[in-house]
Design a protein around this nucleic acid. Structure first.
Length: 320
DNA sequence: GCCAGTCAAGTCCCG
DNA sequence: CGGGACTTGACTGGC
């Protein structure tokens, strides 16, 4: 079984390379010349994409081939007051640069739109805004010439005091979503509302790959035993061209259990791997730790020399 | 230079 | 029903 590690959005090693620089609407509104304000937004977005390229080069140099892009690349994209702004136009060139780099140095690259994207909302406006955000993600992927299939991880959404009804609402809304957007999506169990079993229910019914988050499962489950559902999780990836992926992180402390720790506990990770050994040929593990790429390097070092683990490169291992 | 507060977006919890 | 917490990183304003 091949294990590949990835990390999220930004580097703690690379200086001044934020892909999430921003401008708030309040700041935007303070600038009297609206065109000048929009040009400023565009410069920020271009700088964010430029930093993405630097991050991909950094990843390449360090043999990391799995990465989640920031979902805050374009400040105020999809804001109500800026719907007339064609934010993609000045980004064609920088996106092409990214496309060229990715073509030369293939890597699994995806997104995790943040929790304002809620597909099971009973409010039509919220659903509409969510879909607009997903359309933006699709345009970014297209610009980078990345196959859009299974590139956006989402949570199920709100519980609305009745989780069963909330799940049915997801199915109801799903029918209004275009097939190309549907195919971009993966669903993840969350740490407060929807458990592995509930997320699986949707994934199986709608043909969506499920991203298993082990930390979330420990924080939120009706049945702690995840092993009996693991086969079902694997099955949701049957029709995907991509290997199964999961999220891995450690609790910051017993008291702040849901918060993410700086690094990943290697012993916990190994215990997990031992239990899924042989169930899939390859698994991609997204490390969600405060120390970002430094946490990946740390885990990579910690894995070296463990029995049954063979290092293939900085971020890839073979488990025998 | 440091620290607290603010920010597009949504949901949940409390009073 | 209204307001604050939650959450994340970036950035601003006050000292």
């Amino acid at each position: 079984m091949i294990i590949r590690l990835g990390y999220v959005a930004m580097s703690v090693e690379l200086q001044n390379a934020s892909p999430s620089q921003t401008m708030t609407f309040a700041q935007f509104s303070k600038i009297k010349d609206r065109d000048a304000a929009i040009r400023k937004l565009e410069r920020i977005a271009e700088s964010n994409l430029h930093n993405c390229l630097r991050l991909l080069k950094h990843n390449e140099a360090n043999q990391i081939h799995f990465f989640r892009l920031s979902s805050r690349l374009i400040p105020l994209a999809n804001h109500e007051e800026l719907l007339d702004w064609n934010y993609m136009k000045p980004l064609i060139e920088p996106l092409k640069e990214l496309a060229d780099h990715i073509k030369k140095h293939p890597a699994r690259i995806d997104f995790h739109p943040d929790h304002f994207v809620v597909l099971n909302s009973p409010d039509k406006e919220i659903l509409k805004n969510s879909l607009r955000t997903l359309v933006m993600h699709k345009a970014l992927l297209k610009g980078m010439e990345i196959d859009t299939e299974h590139r956006c991880v989402l949570h199920v959404g709100g519980g609305y005091d009745d989780k069963e009804k909330a799940l049915e609402l997801f199915i109801h809304n799903w029918a209004y979503i275009s097939p190309s957007i549907q195919r971009m999506i993966m669903l993840e169990n969350d740490d407060t509302t929807f458990t592995v079993k509930e997320t699986l229910y949707l994934c199986e019914k709608l043909g969506i790959p499920m991203v298993f988050d082990y930390h979330h499962h420990l924080a939120n489950h009706e049945d702690k035993n995840w092993q009996e559902d693991w086969g079902r999780v694997v099955e949701t990836w049957q029709d995907s061209r991509l290997p199964i992926k999961m999220h891995i992180s450690s609790p910051r402390s017993e008291r702040e259990f849901r918060a993410h720790a700086d690094f990943v506990d290697v012993e916990m990770f190994l215990r997990f791997l031992a239990q899924i050994k042989g169930t899939v040929p390859e698994i991609h593990c997204m490390i969600e730790a405060k120390q970002k790429d430094a946490a990946l390097f740390q885990l990579s070092r910690d894995l070296q020399g463990k029995s049954g683990i063979k290092m293939l490169d900085q971020s890839s291992f073979l488990m025998e």
